[in-house]
Design a protein around this nucleic acid. Structure first.
Length: 947
DNA sequence: CTCCTCACG
DNA sequence: GACGTACGTGAGGAGC
C-alpha cells in the first residue's frame, strides 16, 4: 500500500478569514496588509512539508470561493445576505492568496456559481471513488457532513484544522454535534447559521437541535414528532418553523456532482520549485521563511521539497509592529519527552540547570482553584522548548491501602527549591503567577521573586483585542492556540468534569507529567514570544512600572483577607427572610394569586396581563421588562404592588448575594474572607474581584449599608478607608483641559454646583442634580437618547443641553473628537501612563456596534488613567509605610477608587498622612496633573463605620 | 447555558 | 435615518 494516494483539499477562503482575525495586522515592505497572507503561507508550507510523510498529501489543491452567487440564492434570496463586507485591510489580500498558491506551484480552483464547499464535496467524492484518501483542510461545520464518508474504491474522508492543529474525524464530529456526520445536515437545518443567513428555526440553537435529531433520528422525524409533543414553546416553534427548516435542509446540502475543472492527476504534489516561492517570500518580507527555504535547499537548480530542519509553527504570531520579523522558531510540543522527577538527585539536577539558564517557567498543580484552600500536588519547571519536567509532591495518598507512587519527599523538595525560587539571579515566569505566589507562600513558605507573568504581558499588549469567534482572553489555553498554534491539554481532559472529576493529586504520574510540564513549557514559549513585543509595541512602561510590581502586592492582599462577623450576617439573613415572607404575602394578596416573584417572566405576565397595568413589551424574547425603572414608573402611578416588588427584590438580592453567600465564603482556617482579584478582568486596566466579589458590597441604601457593618477589624485594630474624591472628573478636567473645572477643583469647590452655574446660571438642588448627571454622561460617552432618558427629557432637549455643555467647555468636545480620531486610526486608546485598550469594532459598519465602541473609547482613557493611578499608589504603599516605621498596617481591599486598610488603633495618627500622601502623589513623577487629587479618609471598627 | 436583574465604582 | 445604550464589572435566580 505504499502508493496509496492522499488528496488534500484546502478550503482557502475560509482559512484567510480566520487567519485575518487571528493574526495581527502585519504589512509588507510596500505597505500592503499581509497578516492573513502570512498565515496562509505558513499553512501551505506546513502542508507541503508533510509530503512523503505517512498520511501526508500526495495530491493537493486549493479551492476558493469566487464570491458571486450560487444556486442557493435561487432557492432563498436571503442566502448569505447578512454577510458584512470583508474588512478593508483584508480586501487587498484576496488576490495575494492566489499569488501565494501559485508561488508554491499548487493548483488553485474557483468557479463562478459554485461555492468552495460544493467543489470540495465533488472532488472528495471522485477521489474516494478511486480509492484515494481525502483530507479536507478546513474547520467549516458544513463540511463536517463529509467526514468519515468512504467511496466504493475504499478511500475515506477526514478533516484537518491547521489552526488548532487538530484532525477532525467521526469522533470529533459526534462530540460537536451529538450525531454522526450523515445527520449533521439535519442538525444544521434546525439550528440555522447566522453567518450564511441560513434561517433554521428561531429559538432553536445547537444544543436543542442536536438533542431533537438524536431523539427522533432525523429532521423529518423531529418535525413529524412535533404534533405529538406536549404543549410547549418548542412544540410551537417546530410546528411554525417546519417550512424554514426544510428549506434550510436543502441549503446546507452539499452538491457533490459539480463538473471538475481540473483533473485529479494534475493535483499531484511532486515538490515545490524554490525560485517562484523565494520571489514571493522576498516580495512580502517573509524573511524567516525565506531563510528557511535557503537552508533547506539541496541544490539551487533542482526542484526539491521543503524540508527545513525546524518545522514551521503554524498560526504563530509574527508580531504586530509592521515589518517585524516572524517570531523565533520553536520545535512542536512533544509531551512524551517531559521528565517526571521522582528522585532528589534529579530534582537537584534540574535546579542546577535552572540557575544556569537564569530564566525558568514554573507552574503549580493543586487540589483546588481557591489559592487559600488548595493543597500543593506538584510543581513543574521549563527551561526551554520541550525542556520541561514535573515534580510530583502529593500524588496518591487518598487510598490508605494503595501504595503511593515514589516521589521526592515534600519538605526536602521545598528546601531544595527555595533558593532557586527566591534567587534574585533567576527570573521566574508564570502564567497568572499570582496564584502560584499565593500557593507557594501558603503551603511552602517560599516567597517567589523576581517574576514575569505571561498573562499580564498579554494584557499589556492586547487588552480588548478580540473579534467574533476569536477569543480575546489572556488564559493559557487561548494564548497557546493564538500564538503557538498549539492546543494544550485541558484540565478537563485530565481530571474529567462534574461529579466524575478527580483531584489532580489522583492523576497517574505519566498523565500528570504531560499536563503539568506542558503548561510550564507553553508558558516558557509564550514568554519567549510575547516578552520582546512589550518593548517594540510600547507596553514596557505600563507593564514594568504599574502592573508587574502590583502582582505580589495584590497577592498579599488576597492572603490577608478581611474579617467578617458571621453572627451579624446570620442575624441580617434572618431579618431579611422574615421581611421577605411578609412582603410576599402582601404581594399575593394584591394580585390574588401566588407565583414566583423572582421570575421576571411570571411577574411581567401578572402585572401587565392579569392586573392590566400599562407597560411595553421588550426585546426579541417577547417578554415584558420589569426592571427597576419600569417598576418605579408603575409605583409613581400609584401601583402599590410595584413598590412591594421593588422592596422584595432589594431584600432578596441582599440576602442571597450578600448575607447568605458571604457567610459561606468565610475561610475556615483563617476566619476571614479572601477575594481573588483579576488583573486582566477589565479592558480598561481596572482590577476585578471574584469569589466573592468584594467590589460590589452595598453602600447606596441604608438597608444595604448594614452589610458593610459586618466587615470588621481584628481585635485592637481598626479599618481605614481612603478614597479618591471625584477622580474621574478631575482627570477629565485635566485631559480635556477645561479651565473652569480645573479652577473649581483647585479651590475645592463643589464640582457639580460649579457645572450647574456654568450651564444653567442658577444653582439649586435640581440644577445641581442635572449637572451631575451631565458630568457623568460626559465620562461615559454621551448620546442625546441616553442623556434624555436619564434626565427625563426628550432627545432634542438633551441635545441642546449637550450643545450648551460643549459651548461652555469646548475642551470636552475637542477631547472627544480627538480621542475618537486617534482610536479610529490606530485601533487603540491610551491612558496618560501609556496603557493601551484596543477597539476592534470602532470602524464597524454596524452603527450600533460602532456607537458602543465609541462610547467605550471615550471612557477608557479616563477610567484607565484612574486605574493606573491607584495601582501606582498600591505598589508604593507598603514600602512607604515600612519606611515610616509602620510595619503592622495591612492593605486589604481595593474598590476602584478606594483602598481599605487594617491597622492597630495606635497607628492611625501616623499612618493616615502617609497613606494620603502616597495616594495624592501617585501620578508623579511620570505625569504632573493640572488638578490636585483629593483624598477622603475615615476610620472605624467596621467598613461601614469607616465611611 | 442564556437572559434578566441588580450590587458596586 | 436608525440606534432603544450611558462606561466598567460579577453574581444569583429562573427557565429553557
Amino acid at each position: 500500500m505504499a502508493d496509496k494516494q492522499h488528496l488534500y483539499l484546502v478550503d482557502g477562503s475560509a482559512y484567510i478569514f480566520r487567519a485575518y482575525h487571528r493574526l495581527p495586522p502585519l504589512t509588507n515592505p510596500a505597505g500592503t496588509p499581509v497578516g492573513a497572507v502570512y498565515g496562509y503561507t505558513t499553512m501551505l508550507w506546513k502542508l507541503a512539508e508533510d509530503l512523503n510523510k505517512a498520511d501526508g498529501p500526495t495530491h493537493l489543491a486549493v479551492i476558493l470561493d469566487k464570491g458571486s452567487t450560487s444556486f442557493r440564492n435561487q432557492l432563498y434570496h436571503q442566502y448569505k445576505a447578512n454577510r458584512p463586507p470583508p474588512p478593508e485591510d483584508l480586501v487587498p489580500q484576496f488576490p495575494l492568496i492566489r499569488d501565494a498558491t501559485r508561488a508554491f506551484s499548487l493548483p488553485c480552483i474557483e468557479e463562478d456559481d459554485l461555492e468552495a464547499d460544493d467543489l470540495i464535496a465533488s472532488y472528495a467524492r471522485e477521489a474516494t471513488r478511486r480509492g484515494w484518501d481525502v483530507t479536507i483542510v478546513s474547520s467549516d461545520k458544513d463540511l463536517m457532513q463529509l467526514v468519515g464518508k468512504c467511496g466504493e474504491g475504499g478511500g475515506c474522508i477526514d478533516m484537518l484544522d491547521t489552526m488548532k492543529n487538530q484532525r477532525i474525524d467521526v469522533a470529533e464530529v459526534v462530540e460537536k454535534f451529538g450525531v454522526l456526520p450523515d445527520l449533521v445536515g439535519d442538525v444544521l437545518a434546525l439550528m440555522g447559521d447566522s453567518v450564511d443567513n441560513i434561517p433554521g428555526i428561531y429559538g432553536i440553537g445547537p444544543k436543542t437541535a442536536s438533542k431533537l435529531i438524536q431523539d427522533h433520528g432525523s429532521l423529518a422525524g423531529a418535525l413529524d414528532a412535533a404534533a405529538g409533543m406536549k404543549p410547549s414553546k418548542l412544540r410551537e416553534r417546530l410546528l411554525e418553523g417546519r417550512e424554514m427548516a426544510e428549506l434550510s435542509r436543502v441549503l446546507v446540502q452539499l452538491k457533490e456532482d459539480c463538473d471538475l475543472p481540473i483533473a485529479l492527476e494534475d493535483m499531484k504534489l511532486e515538490g515545490v520549485p524554490p525560485e517562484p516561492l523565494a520571489a514571493f517570500l522576498g516580495e512580502h518580507g517573509f524573511t524567516s521563511l525565506l531563510k528557511r527555504l535557503d537552508g533547506g535547499r539541496g541544490s539551487p537548480d533542482r526542484p526539491t521539497q521543503l524540508n527545513p530542519a525546524k518545522p514551521a509553527t503554524v498560526g504563530a504570531n509574527p508580531g504586530s509592529g509592521g515589518n517585524r520579523q516572524a517570531p523565533p522558531e520553536m520545535p512542536p510540543i512533544d509531551r512524551e519527552g517531559y521528565e517526571c522527577v521522582t528522585s532528589f538527585e534529579r530534582l537537584a539536577h534540574w535546579i542546577e540547570r535552572a540557575f544556569a539558564a537564569r530564566v525558568v517557567a514554573i507552574d503549580t498543580e493543586t487540589s483546588s482553584l481557591d489559592a487559600m484552600r488548595a493543597e500543593l500536588a506538584g510543581i513543574s519547571l521549563a527551561l526551554g522548548p520541550n525542556d520541561a519536567c514535573y515534580v510530583p509532591l502529593g500524588h496518591g495518598g487518598s487510598d490508605m491501602f494503595a501504595e503511593n507512587p515514589v516521589q521526592v519527599e515534600r519538605a526536602a523538595a521545598y528546601d531544595a527549591l527555595r533558593p532557586l525560587l527566591e534567587s534574585d539571579a533567576v527570573l521566574k515566569v508564570g502564567q497568572n503567577i499570582k496564584y502560584d505566589l499565593n500557593i507557594l507562600s501558603r503551603c511552602a513558605n517560599i516567597h517567589v521573586a523576581p517574576i514575569d507573568d505571561t498573562m499580564i504581558v498579554s494584557f499589556a499588549l492586547d487588552a480588548g483585542r478580540s473579534l467574533d469567534g476569536i477569543g480575546g482572553g489572556h488564559g493559557m489555553d487561548e494564548l497557546s492556540t493564538r500564538h503557538l498554534g498549539h492546543t494544550t491539554l485541558t484540565f478537563k481532559d485530565i481530571c474529567g468534569t462534574g461529579r466524575k472529576a478527580i483531584p489532580f493529586s489522583e492523576v497517574p504520574l505519566d498523565r500528570a507529567t504531560q499536563y503539568a510540564a506542558e503548561d510550564a513549557d507553553v508558558t516558557w514559549r509564550l514568554w519567549k514570544l510575547l516578552r520582546p513585543r512589550l518593548a517594540d509595541e510600547g507596553g514596557s512602561r505600563v507593564y514594568e512600572r504599574v502592573d508587574r510590581p502590583l502582582i505580589p502586592v495584590v497577592a498579599q492582599m488576597e492572603r490577608h483577607g478581611i474579617k467578617v462577623d458571621r453572627q451579624q450576617l446570620a442575624r441580617l439573613s434572618e431579618e431579611f427572610a422574615a421581611e421577605i415572607a411578609r412582603i410576599e404575602r402582601e404581594i399575593y394578596d394584591c394580585c390574588g394569586i401566588e407565583f414566583t416573584i423572582g421570575s421576571p417572566k411570571q411577574l411581567g405576565d401578572i402585572l401587565f396581563d392579569r392586573l392590566g397595568y400599562k407597560g411595553g413589551r421588550k426585546g426579541k424574547s417577547g417578554q415584558y421588562s420589569t426592571d427597576q425603572a419600569i417598576l418605579e414608573g408603575l409605583a409613581n402611578e400609584g401601583a402599590d404592588v410595584a413598590t412591594k416588588v421593588l422592596e422584595w427584590r432589594q431584600l432578596a438580592k441582599l440576602k442571597s448575594t450578600y448575607t447568605d453567600a458571604l457567610q459561606a465564603a468565610i475561610n475556615p482556617d483563617t476566619g476571614r474572607v479572601h477575594t481573588s482579584y483579576s488583573l486582566v478582568g477589565a479592558q480598561t486596566g481596572r482590577l476585578s474581584s471574584t469569589d466573592p466579589n468584594l467590589q460590589n458590597i452595598p453602600i447606596r441604601t441604608e438597608i444595604g449599608r448594614q452589610i458593610r457593618e459586618a466587615f470588621v477589624a481584628d481585635e485592637g485594630n481598626v479599618l481605614l478607608a481612603a478614597d479618591y474624591s471625584q477622580i474621574e472628573l478631575r482627570l477629565a478636567a485635566h485631559m480635556a483641559n477645561v479651565p473652569q473645572l480645573k479652577e473649581a477643583f483647585a479651590s475645592g469647590e463643589d464640582i457639580h454646583a460649579r457645572t450647574a452655574a456654568e450651564m444653567f446660571g442658577a444653582v439649586d438642588r435640581d440644577t445641581r442634580a442635572r449637572a451631575k448627571t451631565v458630568n457623568f454622561a460626559i465620562l461615559y460617552g454621551i448620546s442625546r437618547w441616553g442623556l434624555g432618558g436619564r434626565l427625563g427629557v426628550p432627545a432634542d432637549e438633551a441635545q441642546s443641553i449637550i450643545d450648551t455643555y460643549f459651548q461652555r467647555f469646548p475642551g470636552i468636545q475637542h477631547y472627544i473628537h480627538s480621542t475618537l480620531e486617534s482610536v479610529r486610526e490606530k485601533g487603540y486608546s491610551e491612558t496618560l501612563f501609556g496603557r493601551k485598550t484596543w477597539f476592534p469594532r470602532i470602524n464597524s459598519k454596524n452603527p450600533n456596534e460602532r456607537a458602543g465602541s465609541e462610547r467605550a473609547a471615550i471612557n477608557a482613557p479616563i477610567q484607565g488613567t484612574s486605574a493606573d493611578i491607584i495601582k501606582r499608589a498600591m505598589a508604593r504603599m507598603m514600602p512607604a509605610l515600612s519606611d515610616a516605621g509602620l510595619p503592622h498596617v495591612r492593605m486589604l481591599l481595593q474598590v476602584h477608587d478606594e483602598l481599605v486598610f487594617e491597622l492597630p488603633e495606635d497607628d492611625v495618627g501616623a499612618a493616615q498622612p502617609v497613606i494620603e500622601r502616597v495616594m495624592a502623589e501617585a501620578a508623579l513623577p511620570a505625569v504632573t496633573l493640572d488638578v490636585p487629587l483629593g483624598i477622603d479618609i475615615g476610620t472605624g471598627r467596621s467598613w461601614g463605620a469607616a465611611h
